[in-house]
Amino acid sequence: MADALRLYALLIWTWIRAAAQFPVSMVLLGLASAAVAALDMVGIMLLFAHTPRIAGFTAPEVLFLYGTSAMSFVVADVLLGGTERLGEHVRQGTLDTMLVRPVSPLIQIATEDFSPRRMAKLLPPVVVLAFVLPRLPADWTAGRVVMVPVMLVSGTVIFAALWVLTASVQFVVIDVHAATKSVTYGGAFLTQYPMSLYARDFVRGMTFTIPLAFVNWQPALYVLDRPDPLGLPAALRFAAPAVAVALCAVAALAWRAGLRHYRSTGS
């Protein structure tokens, strides 16, 4: 495991060095990515220019949801976003070339073509969290303070597992690239707003099937000391780490099954 992480870092570093050979292009592309990533936040600000509350939540509270969701998503995207191109690798047969190397194809796909500009997308959530955390109307007990990093880490792990899970589907159905995006990018967008904004059954689905509610919503209810609009048990607020671990296990199984199912191309 430690070995895999070392190798992962080494591969990322090689790609960063390659990109750094064109520093101007790297910085400009990074700024462009950061600007595009900030658009979601601008959308939230515009909404609050017209209304003081969204689904019962104030601007700092929603920005807190945005910041935690975006942070988790971007970190997961930086680490494993490359996996969304698995279908492409299957179709072009480049997966075969990865399979004959002594390294997990997951690491190879995740690092393939790694571009440092992906990291620039961290900028908006970092700025928002730095701004909003001190302004949050929360009663900062020790438990609530600890919950913030815990939710960021579990949220990241949940998104990372979703990347792997959706990639595994592409072993079998190669052309679902666009459909799987709705789970990953769609999930990132959904979790930027209070879940009370959505229909009840939809929220139940996001709690118990694709567990997006645990990315930030349930832990945030604890941090903000809010009752669950759906009246779900309060214990769920602390379930995020367990959910993240369980989803990882599911993703690992799916990945292995996908790899076993892989049939390669004709030539």
């Binding site: 080494l10 390659a18 070339t97 004959v100």
Partner: peptide, 26 residues
């Protein structure tokens, strides 16, 4: 392993960097 129909090298990297990556992988 060499596949004549597809390369194991990375399109956007100079050959030397590709070979450095291979060194890390192996």
């Amino acid at each position: 392993v060499v596949f004549g129909q597809r390369t194991t090298l990375w399109w956007d990297l100079p050959l030397r960097d590709s070979l450095t990556l291979i060194r890390h992988l192996y």
